[in-house]
Design a protein around this nucleic acid. Sequence first.
RNA 1: GCGACGGUAGCUCAGCUGGUUUAGAGCGCUUGCUUGACAGGCAAGAGGUCACUGGUUCGAAUCCAGUCCGCCGCACCA
Length: 901
Amino acid sequence: MEIPSKYSPAEVEGKWYQYWMEHKLFHSEPDQREPYTIVIPPPNVTGVLHMGHMLNNTIQDILVRRARMQGKNALWVPGTDHASIATEAKVVGKLAAEGIKKSDLTREEFLRHAWAWTDEHGGIILQQLRRLGASCDWDRTAFTMDEKRSESVIKVFCDLYDKGLIYRGVRMVNWDPKALTALSDEEVIYKEEHSHLFYLKYYLADQADVHPTGAEGEVVHRDDKGYYAVVATTRPETIMGDTAMCINPADPKNRWLSGHRVIVPLVGREIPVIEDDYVDIEFGTGCLKVTPAHDVNDYMLGEKYHLPSIDIFNDNGTLSEAAGLYVGMDRFEVRKQITRDLKEAGLLEKMEDYTNKVGYSERTNVVIEPKLSMQWFLKMEHLAKIALEPVENGTLKFYPAKYINTYRHWLENIKDWCISRQLWWGHQIPAWYLPEGGYVVAENIEQAVEKANRKRKEKACPCGCDAMPPLQAKDLRRDEDALDTWFSSWLWPISLFDGINNPGNEQIKYYYPTSDLVTGPDIIFFWVARMIMAGEEYMHDVPFRNVYFTGIVRDKLGRKMSKSLGNSPDPLALIDTYGADGVRMGMMLSAPAGNDILFDDALCEQGRNFNNKIWNAFRLIKGWEVDEKAAQGEAARVAVAWFGELLKKTVAEVDDLFSKYRLSEALMAVYKLFWDEFSAWYLEMVKPAYQQPIDPVTLHATLDYFEQLCLLLHPFMPFITEELWQNIQQREPGASIMTQRQPKVEAYDNDLIEKVEKLKGVVAGIRTIRLDKNIPNKTPLRLQVTGTETQDFPQVIAKMANVEAIENVPAKAADAASFLVGTTEYSVPLGNMIDKEEECRKMEAELQHLEGFRAGILKKLGNENFVSRAPAAVIEGERKKLSDTESKIRAINETLAAYRK
RNA sequence: GCGACGGUAGCUCAGCUGGUUUAGAGCGCUUGCUUGACAGGCAAGAGGUCACUGGUUCGAAUCCAGUCCGCCGCACCA
C-alpha cells in the first residue's frame, strides 16, 4: 500500500500553499460577481503571531474561503499597523542597548533607525500567517504608514480641522511618564490596588481667629501647636502642588474652617479654604486637598475658583523645581520619603489601608499621571452620533449582539479624543507654526506657506503698509507631534482601497462596504467604533456589514495567556506538531463567538486525529478494486440513498449555522457527519467483503460523497481537503478545491433518515447482545421481531450485525435476549447461552422505569385542569405515550411470565 | 456603585419565543476488542433533582421576582 496509514501534514501543507500562490487563487479584482470582503485587523508590524491571532485569522480564513466557494468574489486584505508607542518603545530600547539615546538623535536620524527596524522585523507576522493557511491577497499587503495610507491620514486630519472638528488646546490629559507622551482615555487601564489613605494635618494659619461654634456635628482638631484640619489623601507626594483646601458648605463637621487659611504640611505655604458641594461629606474627613495640576477633578475646581496651578512633576515622573522639595526624585520614592518626613514632623495624623483604582498605561504599564498640556483633540459629538445610528437600526450587526449595549454606552458618554502623541514614529501632525505665533493646518509645506501668507494678509495693518515680508518654507516650524496610531487604523477599510485620496475609484466602489470584520471585543472602542465613525463620515456608509467578536484566548485554567506566566504556546510549534489543519480545528472546536476560549493542546490533538480519520477513510476507498460488471447490492443501494439525504440535511444545517456565525457548531456538524455517519455507518454498509471488488455505482457515489465532504470541510481544513480532492480523480492543471462550489441547500427525505436511525438502533441492540454474551462477530445470529411489523432494509441489518435471518414471531421465545427500539421488540434466540436470571433482572429494572414513566403520564392525564386546558395535540401526545408505554410493559411482562414458567 | 452577560454531565458548551417518549453534543472516563482504512482506531456503557428560593401556568432548564456566585464593560470619594 503506497499511502501511509498516518497523515503527515508537513509534507502536504507547504506544497499546496505554494500552489495556491502560484495560481493566484487568493487574488481578487473587481468583476461582475458579488464581492465578499474582509480587511484584516492589522497586527503590529514588528509583532509575532500569538494565539489570539491564530483564532482571529482562522475565523477570517474560514469565512473568506467559504464565501469564495459560494461563488462570491472573495477578498481578504492583509496588512500591518505601525503601532506608534509599541514600536517606538522597541526602537528606543534597541538603541539604548547600543548605547544610543533617543534624545541625542534628530527626528530624521531616529526615523531612519525605526524604518530599519521595521524593515527587518516587519512582516514576520504575515509570513507566519501563511503557515496557518490564510488566503489573503498578498499583492495588496498594506501598512498604515505606507504612502497611500499616510496621505489618507493627512488628508483626513486637514479635512476634520477645516470642518472645525479638530482643535488644539491645553487640557488635562493622561500622561505616560515612561513613553513620555499623552494618551487617549481608552489607553488607560484601571487596576485595583492596595494602598494607603494618609491623614495629614493642615494647621490653620490664623490660630488666634479660630472660633469653633460648638454646633452639633462639628469636629474640631487641636493639639499643642494649635487648631488643624485633617485631609485624607492617597497621594501625599502631591502636597507641594496644593493650592487650596476644599470643604462642603453643607458639612457641619467642618463649618468652623470656613473663611480660614491653612498651611500645607512640610511645604509651609498658606492656602485658602474654599467651599464646593463637589466634596463628599462622608469620605475621609470631608476635607479635600486641591492640586489643580495633578488631578482631573482638582483641575475643575481650580478653574472654577481661579486657583493657581503648580506643576510639580517633570515629564518623566520625577519632581520638578516647582515642587521645591524632593526635586529630581521619582514620584514613588517621594511618596515613601514624604511619609517618613511627615511622620517625623508630627504632621501625619494616621494611615489607613485603602483599596482604590489606579490608571496604568496600556502600552508601558506605568502609572498614568494626569497632566495639563497642550494637545490636539478631535471633537466626538458629531462622530458619535453618526456611528451609533447604523448599529441601532441594524444596518451593521454585532455578533454577539450583547456588545451593542457596550457600544451605545461608550458613544453616549464619549469625551473628545486626544489624538496627538509626543512621539516621532507615526504620522506627523500637519500643522505649521508661524514665527509670530499662530499656526496653519495644511496637507504639505507648500500649502502651509500659502495659507500662512494668506493668514498674515488678513491680519495685516489696515493702512496697507506691508510690514511683514512673505513667508517661506524655512520660516515655518512643523508641529513635532505624531498622531495616535488609531487615527490611521480607523481609516483602514477605506484607505486600503484608496477611498480617501481617490474617492469613487473602482476598487472602493466595488469592495466597500466590506462584509465581515473579525476582531476581539477589547478593541471595540479603539478601533471598531472609530472605523464606523470614519466610514459614515467619509463614505456615508458602514465600513462592514457584520462584526464577529471573538473571545479572548485563555489557557485551560482560564488564565489569560501571557509571556510572564509562560502559558502561551508557540503557534508555529503547534502547527509543527499537529498540522495547520489540526490547530485550526483545535481553535474552532472551542470558540463560540464572544465567549472566552479555554485553549488546550488536547483540542489540536482532536483536530489532528480527525485529519487522520479523513485520511484513512480515503485510503479505504482508494484501496477498493472496482468490477465494472458487478451489480449494486441491496445494502449498498440503501446506504447510498440514505447518505445522500443525510448529506443534504447537514448542508442545510451548516448553512443555517454559518448565517448565525456559529462556526464551531457548523464544524461539529460536519465532523459528526464525517466520523459517525460516513465512516462508522455508511462506509461499513457499502464496504465490500474481504478481497471482493466493489460495484461501479456504489464506488462513484462514495467518491462523490467524499468529495462533497471535502468541500464542506475545506474552509475549516484547507490543506488536507486540497490534498485529497486532488487525488479523488485526475484534475486539470491549476484546478483547486478552493474554486469549487459548496454543496447546494436542497430539500431532503427525512423519512428515510429516520428509518435508518431506527435500523441503527437494531444493529446497536444486536451488538450489545454480542458484547454481553461474548458472541464473536463471526458467529451469525437470527433476529426475531415480535408482532407483524415488517423490518425495513433487512439486508443492511444482516450485513452490519451479521444476521443470517430475520423473522416475525407472535411472541418472544423463552431462550432469546431482547431489546426495544421505539415500541418494537426485537429478540435474538440464544439457546442455552441465555442467562435467565440475568435477563429477568434486566427486564425488571426496565419494567420499573417504564412504570414510573407511566405513572407520570397517568398523573398528568388524571389532572382535570390539564385535560381541559392543554391543547388537544399535547393531550393526544400524552395518550400516545401512555399506550406506547403500556404496550412495552405488556411485552416485558409476557416475556417475564414465559421465563418464570 | 451603574450596566451587560452567564451559572445545564468530570471539562467545554448547545437547548431557553414553555409541552414530541421524565435533558443533548464533543472531549474525558469505564468495559470489551491485535476485526484486513484508521489504537491518532472499533464497539458498548456509566454519568445531570438544569446555582438557590419563591411566583405565574394544566405544565418551567425554558417566563417573572429575589438571593448567592462568576466574568466583563463603565464610572468612581481625594
